[in-house]
Design a protein around this nucleic acid. Structure first.
Length: 561
DNA sequence: TTAGGGTTAG
């Protein structure tokens, strides 16, 4: 920067330079400066007489590397208003990038209209930026339309579309497009692979993930830091923590993201000690922990029941450069609640310098319910319902708190409140990958082509589980129906449909791997334990919070979740 | 005379 300042000063003090050289040199300095110091870049731009579009583009690109802001859009409006200099494909691509960062749909669509009007609609860079913008705004069909209109699709265009599908969770579309890309004879690169692996991570598609891993080796795609991190994350989230560890240990270079992936992986598997050992090794390796690393560490302490260690890491964090975020506070509340330190957790929430979010109040309410703390639970529920009056889960929790104390009057009052307000529960959704296809199940949805066979397996499960003396915990079902229907409702919980599908379509010793969008309910947890014993199958369930490994009638979480 | 689009740990 010092040298740049000197050149800048030299130019300004030599006004005899030809105007074109003067402008060109300043615009070159602007290039170097834009990423580092936007304020300085703006001053430079103001010193260039009649700056070309190149200089404006440089500034816009610099602004993109800063915190997300509307400034590129304001700058574009100014250019449009002044009609000079005219924007080019670079301007439009950078602006679309800005809109994608902000997920600014309206502004991006205005730029799209400008793209068409200015005749740049067939420029590959602009098209790729457009499709990426729509996908970041989760406008999937608009993004796909732009993609389909690209005549010469290169690896970047394919990757942008694949990455877009992956981000919005359209797993089967991600894989389908990846296969289309191969058919189109476009070779995927590292970035493409990271996106496809990430889709496996989200959906828990282990077999596809393993296939991709082999594909990377076969095609000799450079197995760099990003790919290795994606693989560590994929194996950990697909239930293979040992394989994740193997890849992680073989990595020659590890950054904070790689370390965090491993730590979070151990944490969600309930391997608290290994998570903390890994964190200690990270510190030894002098890699600065990030905010996510600390979330992993606190998560590990919470799931491992290590309250005092958690407090220790918390106070270390307060002394560090990491600003505790709402997620960190959430982890601490979870940690204290799991250790049944509910009063301490409540005090902690009361003293938070930032407003507690619904998730934090819900954690407290779950604990109050578990410990049948009615008075405290009512206070917590009031705060929660004020913040989030439309979430069915909150009413279900409060209702089961009353149920746990046999307060049927208050329980039915909550149910009525829920009914009057027209609040419906978020449907549970579970998935299972079989032969490269992810089957999704929503509670009570029988649209699966093999629904009849799945129903037969469910009936078999019901009879056999009943034979062990298990009584369904029907208080978990909040519906205005008789007990029999409630029993049926439990048997139609999405994870049971997915487990039944796994039993139908796979054979032992293959592990049945399920991914669920919500937490596993108490009855499903109990029944899955029984199924693992009765059918002699290992069942892995990844719920919203963590992994459960069911083997021979027991769960790896030791019923602590 | 200058430059560009796609990924990555919660």
């Amino acid at each position: 920067m010092r040298v740049l300042h000197q050149i800048h000063a030299h130019i300004l003090t030599h006004p005899h330079l030809p105007p074109s050289t003067f402008s060109f040199t300043l615009s070159k300095i602007l290039c170097f400066v834009a990423y580092r110091n936007v304020t300085y870049a703006k001053r430079l731009l103001s010193q260039i007489p009649n700056p070309t579009i190149f200089s404006y583009n440089t500034l816009i690109r610099g602004l993109l590397s800063q915190n997300p802001c509307q400034e590129p859009i304001f700058l574009f409006k100014k250019l449009l208003h002044e009609k000079f200099p005219k924007s080019n494909t670079f301007t439009l691509a950078f602006l679309l990038k800005s809109c994608s960062i902000l997920a600014a749909l309206k502004e991006g669509q205005q730029i799209h209209r400008h793209v068409i009007g200015s005749g740049f609609g067939s420029n590959l860079f602009v098209q790729t930026s457009l499709l990426n913008f729509y996908m970041k705004c989760e406008e999937v069909s608009l993004g796909r339309k732009v993609f389909d209109e690209i005549t010469e699709k290169n690896v970047v265009a394919w990757s942008a579309m694949i990455g877009g599908y992956s981000r919005v969770g359209m797993v089967n579309e991600t894989f389908r497009l990846f296969r289309d890309m191969q058919r189109a004879k476009v070779e995927p690169d590292g970035m493409t692979m990271v996106s496809v692996i990430s889709a496996c991570t989200v959906s828990g598609a282990l077999d596809l993930g393993k296939w991709l891993h082999a594909y990377i080796d076969k095609k000799a795609i450079k197995n760099d830091l990003e790919i290795s991190t994606a693989l560590v994350n994929m194996y950990a989230k697909c239930g293979c923590i040992e394989k994740a560890k193997e890849i992680f240990e073989a990595m020659p270079v590890k950054d904070a993201k790689a370390w965090s992936s491993m730590i979070v992986g151990f944490a969600i598997h309930g391997h608290a000690e290994e998570a903390l050992e890994t964190f200690a090794l990270m510190e030894e390796a002098k890699i600065e922990p990030s905010n996510v690393t600390l979330i992993g560490v606190l998560l590990a302490c919470a799931h491992g029941g290590l309250a005092s260690e958690g407090r220790k890491y918390w106070s270390c964090m307060l002394k560090s450069r990491i600003e505790p975020s709402i997620e960190h506070y959430g982890c601490m509340v979870d940690l204290l609640c799991r250790a049944n330190l509910i009063e301490e957790a409540y005090g902690f929430v009361e003293s938070m310098p930032i407003d507690p979010n619904p998730a934090i109040w819900r954690t407290l309410l779950v604990s109050c319910k578990k410990n049948k703390m009615l008075a405290k639970g009512e206070i917590v529920a009031e705060r929660l319902l004020k913040l989030e009056p439309l979430n069915a889960e909150n009413y279900i929790l409060l209702s089961s708190l009353y149920a746990s104390r046999s307060d049927w009057v208050k329980m039915s009052h909550v149910r009525k409140q829920m009914k009057d307000r027209g609040i419906k529960a978020i449907p549970g959704c579970s998935s299972i990958e079989i032969n490269g296809f992810v089957h999704e199940f929503v509670m009570g949805d029988w649209s699966h082509p093999e629904a009849k066979e799945i129903k037969e397996i469910l009936r078999d499960i019901e009879v056999r589980v009943h034979g062990t003396g298990h009584e369904p915990w029907i208080a978990a079902v909040l519906r205005y129906v008789g007990d029999e229907e409630k029993r049926d409702a439990l048997y139609e919980h999405s994870e049971r449909l997915a487990i039944a599908c796994g039993l139908l379509k796979t054979k032992a010793p293959e592990v049945i791997r399920i991914v669920k969008n919500l937490r596993v309910c108490a009855d499903c947890h109990e029944v899955t334990k029984i199924i693992s014993r009765l059918y002699n199958r290992e069942i892995m369930v990844r719920d919203r919070i963590r992994f459960h490994k069911f083997v021979d009638g027991a769960c790896s979480c030791r019923d602590f979740w």
